[in-house]
Design a protein around this nucleic acid. Structure first.
Lengths: 335, 335
DNA sequence: TTGTAAGCGTTATCAG
DNA sequence: CTGATAACGCTTACAA
């Protein structure tokens, strides 16, 4: 029963004894209102419990203040950390986040973008999947900005934020070798997303540069259970690896747990392990995982500040490459 | 530069050679349009890339389809799992979630509710904190529904979804005693939220009923680090506890890690541990934590289905009490 | 600085 | 079933 509708600017105007434009101006930053009227309006608004209707405002201004976050597997540590950083950052700049959950199905991201269009979101930030080109173009044509995080797409138009995955992978190869490891392996999921593949590529290439071949194993999705499954594959080999780089921390946690509790392999004494993301669990004393930190706050800041840029200041500054710091813990010998 | 605005129903109507009301009806479920006109409209809309403007629709219908999720500590496993379930459930019923991040500061939730009002959200679901009565009333008066999850408030108006925290706590006390434990302890945070306190209360009372006193320790916020800190307090006591019930799984993980790695205490041989929430990490083989499962999907379904209820069918069916299942793993002896 | 009036893209009402 | 017409609550020229 939404009988008594929300109070409108009209009603505030009447109570304050001014025109409704005066009310509007009072709540528009940078509009010219005399302090006196302003105060009258503010008092009336407060008494009546008035709040600007952003639906109507968005309609007029052609700017809703809404930013869509398009994500799958929201419950995952890395994803939820990024969502936290993004929502926080958006709120700081007066915008608001809409959260759309996607799944692995094909048109899932496209559907989400359609929803973003319906609500006339000012922008969409895509953390998972990749939309169809046609729908992307539709968004861009209508002035909706798009940010791709760790999607490594080469399309023009969206802002692309990526990490130096390959470099990071190369650094960890060196660290393994320095720790005395010679039988290197890479544990990946079958997801095959660009950043995951970049890590694999970088690791294999760097190892080869050091004269070592890498055993690569891919299994399932990017989670703890997959880590256990990959461990099953890697740790039962005749030539058992003595160092495994996991594409994500979640994989690494699963792999470490299987190594220790199922195969009674000691980490790091008999097996060195590294991960990627620096999720909270990586720092827990059961894991103490050496890993690369996703700079979630910097990513969020980069995304949101680009959204706030009035004009297209830089013509081709649409690709941001960020550095992933190596967080050294004790899942690799030495240090 | 959002130069070329989004295409409007007007333009679609012109291209299809019908009136704009025909277009509107085509996209309104349950409106009467002839299949022929309908198809003409659909074709034109598709060709033009038309999408109904939900801002304008919300303005007219007085129903935006937006539901606000008000949460603090989004990155936490339990919270993010609940957010996932809620967003999913909302999407299934054609609604969309706005996510507002709150902090521990006082007016934080009130500010979030103000934002919900501005966007004329149909409802707000509050997972953290508790809003001021005046702002709550303002929301309710204007037909915005409010759901409180695990807030255990006794106000009339909002839908209140809670678990049987006290009962659960009592069950675990019995389990501890059955496992041969006699020196019981409860590890809590200082957050003091109703559900946390209910667990403490229920545990202490049940233990007393079994003739045992409980040592209670509270520290910091509800996270892994606090669990470590509480362990410091509890495990250095002269009479060291042989069973600890932690108010959340995160506390339990921290406590278990400290017990094992810092104090070399074996779980469950020398110390039984239980938690609450059944976060994903509780099932990891490093923890294998016996805990109570938050029925996140059921909670989400209860919340969303209530939001979809047309009228106020039941006058006082506004409190839902859900059962938390005990998930038995190996952090308690026996079984 | 202030008020008036037009218009944003919808949907709802009401004739036809 | 269809098409005008009047809202919805707001912003923003334009004029005073």
């Amino acid at each position: 029963m939404s009988q008594k509708l929300f109070v409108s600017a009209q009603e505030v105007a009447e109570r304050a004894g001014v025109s409704r434009s005066a009310v509007s101006r009072t709540f528009t930053s940078g509009a010219s209102v005399s302090p006196k009227t302003r105060q009258k309006v503010l008092d009336a608004a407060d008494a009546l419990g008035y709040h600007v209707n952003h639906l109507a405002r968005g309609l007029m201004r052609n700017e809703s203040g809404i930013v869509c976050l398009i994500v799958s597997e929201i419950g995952t540590p890395y994803r939820s950390a990024l969502i936290r950083a993004l929502t926080q950052q958006l709120q700081n700049t007066g915008k608001i986040a809409m959260l759309i959950n996607t799944d692995r199905s094909d048109g899932s991201v496209d559907l989400a973008l359609r929803q973003a269009i319906r609500y006339r979101a000012d922008a969409s930030i895509i953390l998972s999947g990749l939309p169809d080109k046609s729908i992307t173009d539709l968004c861009l044509k209508n002035g909706q900005r798009i940010v791709l995080i760790n999607r490594d797409d080469d399309r023009e138009g969206p802002l692309r934020i990526n990490l130096d995955d390959e470099d990071a992978a190369a650094r960890i190869a060196t660290a393994f070798v320095r720790a005395g490891c010679r039988r290197l392996a890479f544990a990946n999921s079958q997801a095959g997303t660009p950043s995951l593949m970049a890590r694999e590529r970088g690791f294999v290439a760097a190892a080869r540069g050091l004269g070592l071949e890498v055993v690569v194993e891919r299994f399932g999705h990017t989670g703890y259970e997959s880590g256990r499954a990959v461990a099953q594959q890697l740790l039962t080999r005749k030539e058992r690896p003595d160092a495994i780089f996991c594409a994500t921390d979640l994989l690494a946690c699963g792999l470490m747990d299987a190594a220790r509790h199922q195969f009674s392999i000691s980490v790091p004494d008999q097996l060195c392990v590294a991960g990627f993301d620096d999720i909270e669990q990586a720092s827990w004393s059961s894991y103490q995982l050496t890993t690369f930190a996703q700079p979630v706050d910097i990513i969020a800041r980069a995304a949101v500040s680009w959204l706030s840029q009035e004009t297209e200041a830089q013509p081709e500054n649409r690709s941001v490459r960020l550095h992933a710091d190596l967080v050294w813990r004790s899942s690799i010998r030495g240090g």
